[in-house]
């Protein structure tokens, strides 16, 4: 392969990283054995790590709690003759007392473990009732914005100071015009496969959770935040969190929300999509409450007809 020169080293490394993450994702989707092996690895670590130090597999931790909750009063005696007799005498002498104490502690531990199990079952049943995780894939993911939206976003942010981050960037449609205009911009999307074409064409796109990326941002880290895709299905509490975190991340900058209006969805989309989503008008209201200057900017995209532009300066 051709060696990249120093000037495009960063783009080359970005591309390699994106290809690695896409390849890992492709293999994981194609080969269930890999998923099983990763679960086995995680399970093995949880088995040897102290409670609370590893993983989030509650069932395994509860099994462990079950085993650890029983205190055995029969301390080992060892094999050396003299020591064994001495330990045996001590054990006999204090056995009745230790038995009395450990019976109480064991009873308490047993109750606590049962309570934890009930609690775990209760959470599981609530999750089942909410059926949050089960409907993924029944409806198509929202399509990426078209070029008209990208040009509108670029014109809003063209002269903007500071780095721009596009959350939910997909293949980089919203990133491209900003990048071409010389704006320092990167995109983040949870789909490692979706970003690959954009990375290969030289865009700075990163695989990761957009919401986590925003939550981890330092105060004033960005000049502007553009949120698309992942914001389509947020409920009120999650949306409010995005508003607060975006405002903190841009300081005196600008936040752009690119989302369709839930009222425009057809009946299947409306009923099967995981979250209900907020309309541009509601997003504008949430930003307006914070004191931001909010504009609703029209675009030529029939789905993303209105962009919410909140200026904090």
């Amino acid at each position: 392969m051709t060696q990249p020169n120093a000037t495009d080293s960063q783009a080359y490394i970005n591309r390699v990283r994106a290809e690695i993450e896409a390849e890992a994702e492709t293999r994981r989707r194609r080969d269930p054995e890999l998923q099983r092996q990763e679960r086995e690895i995680e399970r093995a670590w949880i088995e040897v790590a102290p409670p609370g130090a590893a993983g989030s597999q509650g069932e395994l931790l509860l099994d462990r709690a079950d085993r650890l909750s029983m205190i055995d009063v029969d301390a080992p005696l060892g094999t050396k003759p003299g020591i064994r007799q001495l330990k045996g005498s001590i054990r006999k002498g204090v056995y009745w007392y230790l038995r009395y104490v450990t019976d109480q502690v064991n009873a308490l531990n047993n109750v606590l473990t049962r309570l934890l199990r009930r609690f775990d079952e209760r959470i599981s049943s609530l999750e089942d009732a909410a059926a949050v995780a089960d409907v993924g894939g029944l409806v198509d993911p929202v399509p990426e914005p078209d070029g008209a939206v990208a040009d509108t976003v670029a014109s809003i942010l063209a002269d903007h100071a500071g780095r721009v981050v596009v959350l939910g960037c997909g293949s980089g449609v919203l990133v491209r015009p900003l990048h071409d205009a010389g704006v320092a911009v990167h995109g983040v999307d949870v789909d490692a496969l979706a970003i690959l074409p954009g990375v290969r064409s030289g865009l700075d796109l990163r695989a990761g959770e957009p919401a986590s990326h925003l939550a981890a941002a330092r105060a004033g880290e960005f000049g502007a935040v553009v949120a698309a895709g992942f914001v389509e299905d947020l409920g009120p509490a999650a949306a409010q969190r995005v508003v607060e975190q975006a405002i903190a991340a841009v300081g005196n900058g600008t936040v752009v929300i690119a989302t369709g209006d839930p009222a425009d969805r057809d009946v299947i989309d409306r009923e099967l999509r995981v979250g209900r989503g907020l309309s541009p008008a509601t997003w504008a209201y949430l930003f307006g409450r914070t004191g931001a200057t909010v504009d609703l900017v029209e675009t030529a995209d029939p789905r993303l007809r209105t962009l919410v532009v909140a200026r904090l300066a």
């Binding site: 990283r17 993450e21 890999l34 990763e38």
Partner: peptide, 10 residues
């Protein structure tokens, strides 16, 4: 190479 995902197969 910086990785955003450190699951074993990644």
């Amino acid at each position: 190479i910086l990785l955003g995902d450190k699951t074993p197969h990644a």
